[in-house]
Design a protein around this nucleic acid. Structure first.
Lengths: 151, 151
DNA sequence: GCGGACTAGTTGCGTGTGCAATGATTATGT
DNA sequence: ACATAATCATTGCACACGCAACTAGTCCGC
């Protein structure tokens, strides 16, 4: 068991920690959002991404990147949200292959309602995770580094 | 825009970073493992968990926790691996509700083969992620904190 | 002991996902 | 100018997942 093997184990352990934390947070957000606004986490991510592009449009591909989803999944995700009247497809004139998406007033309204719920759940689960010794360092780094980045 | 709002944004940004990093790593591991040993990431996680319980058994429930999966998904995951001859179900005598799972020699052999591939892919994607400014702090924390925990 | 609450694991069912193939539009090379 | 390649989004298909309902086994109170 040499130094190289230690490095392997350290990486693997870090990855397991990351995966565990991710699963914990996602499960809690999923629960909270589904309960109060009938939204999944990815669906919320779409609304969030669109709302942050305030007044401006977003291509399907950008949406796929923001959600870490395949093109096909993105298509259906957008279709679901469109069917609920939360966003609209806008085919752009300059490149007729591309399709822009934009929040409807109803979509923006729902997002405004979902936003505090999302944050409350996130704050709660991060606090809980911060209490677990194996997760705490990552939780701290997550917030600490972002303090610097956000300042 | 007060301090409270900043905290909200910091949490959200941290979560997006975590999710992005998680997706990046998982996609790369998925690709590498599927290509070389026809294993998904969760399937590898099962083999890894079982191999680390060296010589000892694991209940379905523990497996569900280790993989962050529902009981039903765990059942089918184990069934898949059992059908491939990589592990066996063992119903334990002391509590006849419980079911233990154990690696077969074939399963252990496959894991030995998958292990270096897994680590190579993980090391590569972590190095890549470390180069992206928005991901770097978390990547660093992940490995750094584990150095301390592992020592 | 015996009936009811509880736990462990499994199945039916609906749904979201990725991959590969396709249609539609734009870019490129000669 | 025209054919070929590349890009964006969408569909067919198979599959893995979660939830709820179910079966089998254990624990508890009386």
């Amino acid at each position: 068991m040499g130094i190289a093997d230690d490095a392997v184990e350290i990486r693997a352990r870090g990855w397991r920690t990351l995966a565990a934390l991710h699963a914990l947070i996602e499960a809690e957000l999923e629960r909270a959002l589904a309960e109060s606004v009938q939204l999944s986490v990815v669906e919320y991510t779409v609304l969030d991404a669109l709302s942050r592009q305030d007044g401006w449009h977003m291509r399907m591909q950008q949406l796929a990147r923001a959600t870490a989803l395949s093109p096909s999944a993105t298509t259906r995700l957008v279709t679901r949200l469109e069917d609920r009247g939360l966003l609209t497809r806008i085919l752009c004139a300059d490149d007729r292959r591309g399709i822009y998406t934009e929040l409807t007033p109803s979509g923006r309204e729902l997002f405004e309602r979902a936003h505090p719920i999302h944050d409350e759940a996130l704050a709660r689960v991060l606090a809980e995770a911060g209490g677990r010794p194996e997760l705490a360092p990552v939780v701290h780094a997550l917030q600490g580094s972002q303090v610097l980045a956000g300042a």
